[in-house]
Design a protein around this nucleic acid. Structure first.
Lengths: 133, 133
DNA sequence: AATATATTATTGCAAATGCAATTAAATTAG
DNA sequence: CTAATTTAATTGCATTTGCAATAATATATT
């Protein structure tokens, strides 16, 4: 069964390599685009929360968010109740870009899954949902 | 279906975070241990071949292999036929460590898959094998 | 055989990464 | 209420990462 983690590792690295190349023109190399997708879909998470939800180191995530703020994609807002936290929101620019990012994600998924039938895709999605991440 | 690539991405990052922590005492943080596993299982690949098989950038892989040579885990040998390539082999140290690495991989897999039955695990493995990586 | 193209290893460099430590606010325990 | 503990953001720093470029060899083309 160890082959499972090898395969998903290889798939992830492979997907990231391609997406880096794809989004370089937008300055969104690395995993930048997953931050945007996540933030548009669930705006208002605080910094650490966002990092944890993406399974990315908090300090790495912190600096990436700074960069995305500088690029005009995200903005940070202080919380009224809790002075400690800063909440992350997408700008209009990010919201406008979102459909394109989502399309890419979809296409990327289609390529990865091209050898699987619809039934198999559903099966796979269901099984992955049960992973203990 | 886009959820599939999100999930495997999150799983991969999560697994790597834990393995980094686990192997820090051995100096094998990052993905170092997957190089060792791969090289023990298939010794003699040339540098670029190894990198490609792990879906890792060739220059990154190049430097990582250098590091593993320095740490005494791998060694490079010139090829008789092809002066351009260098083949990568595990040292005794690496071969001795291999069972431990493989055990870890197995345990890590067990944790990830703990909510899946044996049938489901087999199903998942089969579906992942069909991915177009 | 000579030239052009492709492949491999390697280095330079700037950016990203992540652990450790710090500061400040919030929560919990006494 | 006060002190101790936890949690969040932030910075420092050394390492890693990966694109771009280079050099050397191998392969393909004419």
């Amino acid at each position: 069964m160890f082959k499972i983690i090898r395969t998903i590792g290889a798939a992830t690295r492979s997907i990231q390599t391609v997406s880096n190349e794809t989004f370089k023109p937008l300055g969104l190399n690395n995993n930048l685009f997953i931050y945007l997708i996540r933030t548009v879909e669930q705006p208002g998470m605080f910094l650490g929360e966002l990092a944890d939800s993406l399974q990315i180191d908090r300090t790495t995530s912190f600096r990436t968010v700074q960069k995305l703020v500088k690029l005009g994609y995200l903005e940070l807002k202080n919380d009224q109740q809790n002075l400690k936290i800063k909440r992350v929101f997408p700008t209009t620019k990010a919201k406008e870009l979102y459909p394109q990012l989502h399309d890419y994600e979809q296409q990327s998924s289609d390529v990865l899954l091209k050898n699987l039938s619809t039934t198999e895709r559903n099966q796979l999605a269901k099984l992955l949902d049960k992973l203990n991440i």
